[in-house]
Design a protein around this nucleic acid. Structure first.
Length: 302
DNA sequence: AAAGTAGGCAACCGCATGTTC
DNA sequence: CGAACATGCGGTTGCCTACTT
Protein backbone atom coordinates (compact mmCIF):
# COMPACT_ATOMS: atom_id res chain seq x y z
CA UNK A 1 0.00 0.00 0.00
CA UNK A 2 1.26 3.37 -0.92
CA UNK A 3 0.29 4.88 2.35
CA UNK A 4 2.52 2.48 4.22
CA UNK A 5 5.56 4.02 2.67
CA UNK A 6 4.63 7.48 3.74
CA UNK A 7 5.84 9.08 6.89
CA UNK A 8 4.09 12.08 8.16
CA UNK A 9 3.19 14.01 11.22
CA UNK A 10 0.06 13.04 13.11
CA UNK A 11 -1.94 16.01 11.97
CA UNK A 12 -0.26 16.66 8.71
CA UNK A 13 1.50 19.69 10.12
CA UNK A 14 3.69 20.70 12.99
CA UNK A 15 3.40 18.70 16.15
CA UNK A 16 4.06 19.73 19.69
CA UNK A 17 5.87 17.05 21.61
CA UNK A 18 8.61 17.07 24.20
CA UNK A 19 11.95 17.91 22.64
CA UNK A 20 13.29 14.46 23.46
CA UNK A 21 10.72 12.97 21.18
CA UNK A 22 10.94 15.60 18.51
CA UNK A 23 13.20 13.60 16.26
CA UNK A 24 11.05 10.54 16.43
CA UNK A 25 7.92 12.61 16.02
CA UNK A 26 9.25 13.95 12.76
CA UNK A 27 8.97 10.46 11.37
CA UNK A 28 5.71 9.47 12.94
CA UNK A 29 3.49 7.61 10.57
CA UNK A 30 -0.20 7.07 10.44
CA UNK A 31 -2.74 5.06 8.57
CA UNK A 32 -3.23 1.32 8.50
CA UNK A 33 -0.90 -0.78 10.57
CA UNK A 34 1.39 -3.26 8.92
CA UNK A 35 1.98 -6.81 10.09
CA UNK A 36 5.47 -5.82 11.12
CA UNK A 37 4.20 -3.02 13.30
CA UNK A 38 1.63 -5.32 14.85
CA UNK A 39 4.31 -7.84 15.64
CA UNK A 40 6.53 -5.18 17.20
CA UNK A 41 3.73 -3.85 19.34
CA UNK A 42 2.40 -7.23 20.40
CA UNK A 43 5.86 -8.47 21.19
CA UNK A 44 6.71 -5.47 23.28
CA UNK A 45 3.48 -5.54 25.23
CA UNK A 46 3.88 -9.26 25.82
CA UNK A 47 7.30 -8.65 27.26
CA UNK A 48 6.71 -5.44 29.19
CA UNK A 49 2.99 -5.15 29.68
CA UNK A 50 0.55 -2.40 28.81
CA UNK A 51 0.83 1.23 29.72
CA UNK A 52 3.40 3.96 29.24
CA UNK A 53 2.47 4.03 25.61
CA UNK A 54 4.68 6.94 24.69
CA UNK A 55 7.71 5.18 26.11
CA UNK A 56 6.63 1.94 24.54
CA UNK A 57 6.45 3.36 21.08
CA UNK A 58 10.02 4.59 21.29
CA UNK A 59 11.41 1.53 23.00
CA UNK A 60 9.73 -0.81 20.58
CA UNK A 61 10.99 1.12 17.63
CA UNK A 62 7.53 2.00 16.45
CA UNK A 63 7.07 5.21 14.57
CA UNK A 64 3.62 5.75 15.95
CA UNK A 65 2.16 7.96 18.64
CA UNK A 66 1.51 6.39 21.99
CA UNK A 67 -2.17 6.95 21.47
CA UNK A 68 -2.07 5.13 18.19
CA UNK A 69 -0.29 2.17 19.79
CA UNK A 70 -2.76 2.05 22.63
CA UNK A 71 -5.69 2.12 20.23
CA UNK A 72 -4.23 -0.56 18.02
CA UNK A 73 -3.58 -2.77 21.02
CA UNK A 74 -6.99 -2.31 22.59
CA UNK A 75 -9.03 -2.58 19.43
CA UNK A 76 -7.13 -5.20 17.52
CA UNK A 77 -4.15 -6.90 19.10
CA UNK A 78 -5.26 -7.43 22.67
CA UNK A 79 -5.90 -11.10 23.41
CA UNK A 80 -9.56 -11.87 23.51
CA UNK A 81 -10.66 -9.17 21.15
CA UNK A 82 -13.69 -10.51 19.42
CA UNK A 83 -14.43 -9.74 15.81
CA UNK A 84 -17.27 -10.37 13.47
CA UNK A 85 -20.96 -9.73 13.61
CA UNK A 86 -22.81 -9.16 16.83
CA UNK A 87 -25.01 -11.98 18.03
CA UNK A 88 -28.68 -11.26 18.72
CA UNK A 89 -27.92 -11.32 22.41
CA UNK A 90 -25.18 -8.79 22.01
CA UNK A 91 -27.43 -6.63 19.88
CA UNK A 92 -30.14 -6.81 22.48
CA UNK A 93 -27.71 -5.93 25.21
CA UNK A 94 -26.41 -2.97 23.25
CA UNK A 95 -29.89 -1.66 22.67
CA UNK A 96 -30.74 -1.99 26.31
CA UNK A 97 -27.56 -0.53 27.69
CA UNK A 98 -27.64 2.36 25.26
CA UNK A 99 -31.15 3.16 26.38
CA UNK A 100 -29.78 3.47 29.88
CA UNK A 101 -26.44 5.10 29.34
CA UNK A 102 -26.56 6.76 25.97
CA UNK A 103 -23.33 7.05 24.01
CA UNK A 104 -21.19 5.64 26.79
CA UNK A 105 -19.52 3.27 24.41
CA UNK A 106 -16.73 2.12 26.64
CA UNK A 107 -19.16 1.45 29.44
CA UNK A 108 -21.41 -0.54 27.14
CA UNK A 109 -18.48 -2.40 25.65
CA UNK A 110 -17.31 -3.35 29.12
CA UNK A 111 -20.40 -5.51 29.35
CA UNK A 112 -19.68 -7.24 26.08
CA UNK A 113 -16.50 -9.21 26.72
CA UNK A 114 -14.16 -9.14 23.79
CA UNK A 115 -15.94 -6.25 22.16
CA UNK A 116 -14.40 -2.82 21.97
CA UNK A 117 -16.04 0.53 22.38
CA UNK A 118 -15.11 1.27 18.80
CA UNK A 119 -16.97 -1.78 17.57
CA UNK A 120 -20.05 -1.00 19.62
CA UNK A 121 -19.97 2.58 18.43
CA UNK A 122 -19.64 1.52 14.81
CA UNK A 123 -22.47 -0.94 15.21
CA UNK A 124 -24.69 1.76 16.57
CA UNK A 125 -23.82 4.25 13.92
CA UNK A 126 -24.07 1.89 11.00
CA UNK A 127 -26.92 -0.45 11.95
CA UNK A 128 -29.05 1.28 14.50
CA UNK A 129 -28.92 4.71 12.97
CA UNK A 130 -29.68 3.16 9.61
CA UNK A 131 -32.93 1.86 10.98
CA UNK A 132 -33.71 5.23 12.48
CA UNK A 133 -33.13 6.74 9.09
CA UNK A 134 -35.54 4.24 7.55
CA UNK A 135 -38.12 5.41 10.03
CA UNK A 136 -37.38 8.98 9.22
CA UNK A 137 -36.71 9.85 12.82
CA UNK A 138 -33.90 10.39 15.24
CA UNK A 139 -32.50 7.59 17.36
CA UNK A 140 -33.34 9.61 20.41
CA UNK A 141 -36.96 10.11 19.48
CA UNK A 142 -39.82 8.42 21.22
CA UNK A 143 -40.93 7.00 17.94
CA UNK A 144 -37.69 5.20 17.46
CA UNK A 145 -37.72 3.96 21.02
CA UNK A 146 -41.16 2.52 20.41
CA UNK A 147 -40.02 0.84 17.24
CA UNK A 148 -37.13 -0.69 19.10
CA UNK A 149 -39.23 -1.83 21.98
CA UNK A 150 -42.10 -3.15 19.94
CA UNK A 151 -40.35 -4.44 16.88
CA UNK A 152 -36.65 -4.86 17.12
CA UNK A 153 -36.19 -6.17 20.60
CA UNK A 154 -39.05 -8.67 20.38
CA UNK A 155 -37.63 -9.85 17.09
CA UNK A 156 -34.25 -10.28 18.68
CA UNK A 157 -35.79 -12.24 21.49
CA UNK A 158 -37.69 -14.37 19.04
CA UNK A 159 -34.52 -14.97 17.13
CA UNK A 160 -32.62 -15.90 20.24
CA UNK A 161 -35.41 -18.19 21.27
CA UNK A 162 -35.61 -19.78 17.84
CA UNK A 163 -31.88 -20.27 17.60
CA UNK A 164 -31.72 -21.90 20.97
CA UNK A 165 -34.70 -24.09 20.23
CA UNK A 166 -33.01 -25.15 17.05
CA UNK A 167 -29.83 -25.80 18.95
CA UNK A 168 -31.69 -27.94 21.44
CA UNK A 169 -33.43 -29.84 18.68
CA UNK A 170 -30.36 -30.42 16.63
CA UNK A 171 -27.57 -30.54 19.11
CA UNK A 172 -25.24 -32.38 16.84
CA UNK A 173 -25.37 -29.48 14.44
CA UNK A 174 -24.29 -26.93 16.98
CA UNK A 175 -22.12 -28.84 19.40
CA UNK A 176 -19.27 -29.08 17.00
CA UNK A 177 -19.10 -25.33 16.76
CA UNK A 178 -16.45 -23.35 18.53
CA UNK A 179 -18.89 -21.75 20.96
CA UNK A 180 -21.43 -24.31 22.09
CA UNK A 181 -24.76 -22.74 22.71
CA UNK A 182 -25.10 -24.53 26.01
CA UNK A 183 -21.70 -23.90 27.38
CA UNK A 184 -21.85 -22.90 31.00
CA UNK A 185 -20.19 -19.63 31.88
CA UNK A 186 -17.70 -21.20 34.19
CA UNK A 187 -14.94 -20.77 31.66
CA UNK A 188 -15.10 -17.40 30.02
CA UNK A 189 -14.00 -17.59 26.46
CA UNK A 190 -12.01 -14.40 26.81
CA UNK A 191 -10.12 -14.52 30.05
CA UNK A 192 -7.96 -11.59 29.11
CA UNK A 193 -10.83 -9.31 28.34
CA UNK A 194 -11.96 -6.80 30.88
CA UNK A 195 -15.04 -8.75 31.74
CA UNK A 196 -17.36 -7.46 34.39
CA UNK A 197 -17.65 -9.46 37.53
CA UNK A 198 -21.38 -9.82 37.60
CA UNK A 199 -24.38 -10.12 35.43
CA UNK A 200 -25.78 -6.97 34.13
CA UNK A 201 -28.43 -7.19 31.50
CA UNK A 202 -31.23 -6.59 33.90
CA UNK A 203 -29.59 -3.66 35.49
CA UNK A 204 -31.98 -1.10 36.82
CA UNK A 205 -29.83 1.94 37.03
CA UNK A 206 -26.94 3.23 35.02
CA UNK A 207 -24.34 3.06 37.68
CA UNK A 208 -22.21 0.48 39.33
CA UNK A 209 -25.02 -0.79 41.46
CA UNK A 210 -26.94 -1.63 38.35
CA UNK A 211 -25.28 -4.93 37.80
CA UNK A 212 -27.34 -7.47 39.61
CA UNK A 213 -26.65 -11.09 40.09
CA UNK A 214 -29.18 -13.59 38.97
CA UNK A 215 -29.89 -17.07 40.13
CA UNK A 216 -26.82 -19.01 41.19
CA UNK A 217 -26.77 -21.16 38.11
CA UNK A 218 -29.07 -19.80 35.47
CA UNK A 219 -27.66 -22.11 32.87
CA UNK A 220 -29.03 -25.13 34.60
CA UNK A 221 -32.32 -24.25 32.99
CA UNK A 222 -32.69 -24.63 29.27
CA UNK A 223 -31.29 -21.60 27.47
CA UNK A 224 -34.55 -21.02 25.70
CA UNK A 225 -36.42 -21.00 28.97
CA UNK A 226 -34.32 -18.09 30.11
CA UNK A 227 -35.90 -15.92 27.50
CA UNK A 228 -39.48 -16.42 28.45
CA UNK A 229 -40.18 -12.78 28.21
CA UNK A 230 -43.15 -12.75 30.49
CA UNK A 231 -41.37 -14.43 33.33
CA UNK A 232 -40.77 -12.00 36.15
CA UNK A 233 -38.18 -14.29 37.60
CA UNK A 234 -36.07 -14.59 34.55
CA UNK A 235 -32.52 -15.13 35.70
CA UNK A 236 -29.95 -12.50 35.12
CA UNK A 237 -27.97 -12.73 32.00
CA UNK A 238 -24.25 -12.80 32.35
CA UNK A 239 -21.98 -11.33 29.78
CA UNK A 240 -20.38 -14.68 29.20
CA UNK A 241 -23.78 -16.01 28.39
CA UNK A 242 -24.32 -13.10 26.08
CA UNK A 243 -21.42 -14.09 23.95
CA UNK A 244 -21.54 -17.83 24.30
CA UNK A 245 -25.25 -18.21 24.02
CA UNK A 246 -25.84 -18.23 20.34
CA UNK A 247 -22.74 -17.13 18.59
CA UNK A 248 -22.70 -20.35 16.69
CA UNK A 249 -26.29 -20.05 15.64
CA UNK A 250 -26.20 -16.54 14.38
CA UNK A 251 -23.35 -14.40 13.35
CA UNK A 252 -22.55 -11.62 11.03
CA UNK A 253 -24.48 -8.50 10.32
CA UNK A 254 -27.76 -7.36 11.62
CA UNK A 255 -30.35 -10.04 12.09
CA UNK A 256 -32.98 -7.43 11.53
CA UNK A 257 -32.62 -7.48 7.80
CA UNK A 258 -36.14 -6.57 6.89
CA UNK A 259 -36.63 -2.89 6.34
CA UNK A 260 -38.31 -1.00 9.11
CA UNK A 261 -40.87 0.53 6.84
CA UNK A 262 -41.96 -2.91 5.67
CA UNK A 263 -42.17 -4.23 9.18
CA UNK A 264 -44.05 -1.24 10.42
CA UNK A 265 -46.50 -1.45 7.59
CA UNK A 266 -47.03 -5.12 8.26
CA UNK A 267 -47.26 -4.68 11.98
CA UNK A 268 -49.78 -1.91 11.67
CA UNK A 269 -51.79 -3.97 9.26
CA UNK A 270 -51.68 -7.11 11.35
CA UNK A 271 -52.49 -5.24 14.47
CA UNK A 272 -55.09 -2.89 13.20
CA UNK A 273 -56.89 -3.16 16.50
CA UNK A 274 -53.73 -2.17 18.31
CA UNK A 275 -53.38 -5.56 19.88
CA UNK A 276 -49.76 -6.01 18.96
CA UNK A 277 -48.16 -2.62 19.01
CA UNK A 278 -49.98 -0.58 21.56
CA UNK A 279 -49.61 3.07 20.99
CA UNK A 280 -47.35 2.70 18.04
CA UNK A 281 -48.11 3.85 14.58
CA UNK A 282 -46.45 5.51 11.69
CA UNK A 283 -48.10 8.76 12.52
CA UNK A 284 -47.95 8.91 16.24
CA UNK A 285 -45.68 8.81 19.20
CA UNK A 286 -46.38 7.45 22.59
CA UNK A 287 -44.24 9.89 24.40
CA UNK A 288 -42.39 7.15 26.21
CA UNK A 289 -39.12 8.43 27.44
CA UNK A 290 -37.02 5.43 28.19
CA UNK A 291 -37.47 1.81 27.45
CA UNK A 292 -35.48 -1.14 28.54
CA UNK A 293 -35.29 -4.88 28.64
CA UNK A 294 -37.25 -4.72 31.84
CA UNK A 295 -40.19 -3.53 29.81
CA UNK A 296 -39.74 -6.38 27.40
CA UNK A 297 -39.58 -8.98 30.13
CA UNK A 298 -42.80 -7.72 31.64
CA UNK A 299 -44.96 -7.72 28.56
CA UNK A 300 -45.79 -10.61 26.27
CA UNK A 301 -44.63 -10.59 22.74
CA UNK A 302 -47.03 -9.78 19.98
C1' DA B 1 -17.43 -4.62 -17.68
C1' DA B 2 -16.98 -0.09 -15.87
C1' DA B 3 -18.45 3.71 -13.08
C1' DG B 4 -20.92 5.36 -9.29
C1' DT B 5 -22.74 4.82 -4.65
C1' DA B 6 -23.35 3.29 -0.04
C1' DG B 7 -22.02 0.71 3.95
C1' DG B 8 -18.69 -0.96 7.21
C1' DC B 9 -14.79 -0.43 9.75
C1' DA B 10 -10.11 1.02 11.28
C1' DA B 11 -7.79 4.85 12.62
C1' DC B 12 -7.27 9.67 13.91
C1' DC B 13 -8.48 13.93 16.44
C1' DG B 14 -9.70 16.87 20.18
C1' DC B 15 -11.17 17.17 24.68
C1' DA B 16 -11.68 15.59 29.49
C1' DT B 17 -9.87 13.38 33.29
C1' DG B 18 -6.33 11.24 36.03
C1' DT B 19 -1.56 10.95 37.58
C1' DT B 20 3.00 12.44 38.56
C1' DC B 21 6.39 15.66 39.87
C1' DC C 1 -1.16 23.75 44.39
C1' DG C 2 -0.26 23.93 39.68
C1' DA C 3 1.95 22.46 35.47
C1' DA C 4 3.12 18.77 32.50
C1' DC C 5 2.27 14.51 30.88
C1' DA C 6 -0.40 10.14 30.22
C1' DT C 7 -4.53 7.92 29.47
C1' DG C 8 -9.35 7.35 28.26
C1' DC C 9 -13.37 8.56 25.71
C1' DG C 10 -16.56 9.96 22.14
C1' DG C 11 -16.94 12.03 17.62
C1' DT C 12 -15.36 12.14 13.06
C1' DT C 13 -12.87 10.97 8.94
C1' DG C 14 -11.22 8.38 5.15
C1' DC C 15 -10.31 4.05 2.93
C1' DC C 16 -11.82 -0.35 1.25
C1' DT C 17 -15.25 -3.36 -0.38
C1' DA C 18 -19.67 -4.80 -1.93
C1' DC C 19 -23.52 -3.60 -4.33
C1' DT C 20 -26.16 -1.16 -7.90
C1' DT C 21 -26.84 1.02 -12.24
Amino acid sequence: MEMDAQWMSPSGGSISLPSSAAAAAAELRRGPWTAEEDALLAGYVAAHGEGRWNELTLAAGLRRTGKSCRLRWLNYLRPGVRRGGFTPREQLLILDLHSRWGNRWSKIAAHLPGRTDNEVKNYWRTRVQKHAKQLGCDVGSGRFHDAMRNLWMPRLLERIHADESAAAGDASHYFHAASPAHAPPSQPAYPNAAAPTSSCARATSPDAASCVTGSPSPWEASPAAQFQTSSPSMPAWSTEQCQNGCSSATSGGDMFDESWSELLARANHDDADSAGLPGFGLLGETGDSLWSLDDIWQQPLC
